[in-house]
């Protein structure tokens, strides 16, 4: 209720009822043709996923004989286990998970504090501050790369997950501040007035009124920050050089083209790279579609 920006554009697939009833009965040849085109495009988009899935469970000889389109003649797990052990996959999963979780929590916290001051507190010069903060999100990361590399090297955080955590907390909270500040700008005034009449301090109002009411928005941000951080590449690549600190995308990418990677092991590596995000997508699908659209209209 207090977060119209995130709840209003709820994705409703079904148009008004009577309209649908009138249209549903008449399907022309043209309609079926358009459906066929839409399904065909969907297939084209899905084919790479299906190919990777089928070929990750083949032996290289099976691949050579049956080609890429056949189903595996026998389930073969050596490609996946070989790659799994070679990169110490559980370790990489943990690194990605740890970095993304800490970033998501910290960035949501910072976004909330910033947005509290900008949206509710309406501090002087807030428009310029929001623009400045948004800059952090739009800059190409290359422009920060070398100075950051140098700075973190100086303080001994080079090749540490904490360097990456600090950097992405700032970058993600930039977007969060931008979105939340406008959400908080339309926060129901009566609630704030009532709380302040009851003698609540600013800190109490933030935690007891604003936080619980904006929790749906905050959880969308949390999920987004988690996935965005999981998918990041350039900064983890340059800052996490040690094998023990690498994230999933980095570990998988740096091994491509390695001479020990045969055709089905490479496929297995792609499968391991896409599985985690696929799982997140399936779990959070509704929240995600809602969030993407909210981010765009804001």
């Amino acid at each position: 209720m207090a977060v119209p920006t995130l709840t209003a554009p709820e994705v409703v697939q079904e148009p008004p009822r009577q309209r649908r009833r009138s249209g549903r009965s008449r399907k022309t040849v043209g309609d079926w043709l358009i459906l066929a085109v839409a399904v065909l495009i969907g297939l084209l988009i899905a084919v790479p996923f299906l190919l990777i899935l089928a070929n990750s469970f083949k032996s290289p000889t099976d691949y050579a004989q049956g080609g890429p389109l056949s189903l595996p003649s026998a389930l073969y797990f050596d490609g996946i286990t070989a790659f799994w052990e070679r990169v110490d996959f559980p370790r990489k999963l943990w690194n990605s998970f740890f970095i993304s979780t800490v970033v998501a929590v910290l960035a949501v916290g910072i976004s909330m504090f910033n947005a509290f001051a900008l949206g509710i507190g309406r501090v002087r010069g807030r428009t310029w501050l929001v623009l400045l903060i948004l800059l952090a999100n739009m800059l190409p990361q290359e422009v920060l790369l070398y100075p950051l590399y140098f700075m973190f090297r100086q303080v001994g955080l080079y090749d540490s997950v904490w360097a990456v955590i600090i950097i992405f907390t700032v970058i993600q909270s930039a977007f969060g501040t931008y979105l939340l500040a406008s959400v908080y700008g339309t926060f129901p005034k009566e609630l704030l007035e009532a709380a302040s009449l009851d003698g609540a301090s600013r800190w109490q109002i933030l935690w007891r009124v604003i936080f619980p009411i904006s929790r749906p928005t905050l959880s969308v941000l949390l999920i987004f920050f988690f996935i965005w951080t999981w998918n990041e590449f350039l900064i983890p690549l340059t800052f996490l050089v040690g094998n023990d600190n690498q994230t999933v995308p980095v570990a998988i990418t740096v091994l491509q083209g390695d001479r020990l990677m045969d055709v089905t092991t490479t496929s297995a590596s792609a499968l391991l790279g896409l599985l985690p995000t696929l799982i997140f997508f399936l779990i959070f699908q509704r929240t995600l579609t809602r969030g993407i659209t909210a981010g765009a209209v804001k």
């Binding site: 001051a117 900008l118 949206g119 507190g121 309406r122 005034k189």
Partner: peptide
């Protein structure tokens, strides 16, 4: 003015400190 009656706008700068320092 801020949205909270009785709280001056300037008193909110405190909440921007961690974010702006990191930025």
């Amino acid at each position: 003015t801020s949205l909270i009656p009785g709280s001056s706008r300037n008193s909110f700068w405190f909440y921007l400190l961690p974010g702006l320092a990191l930025l």
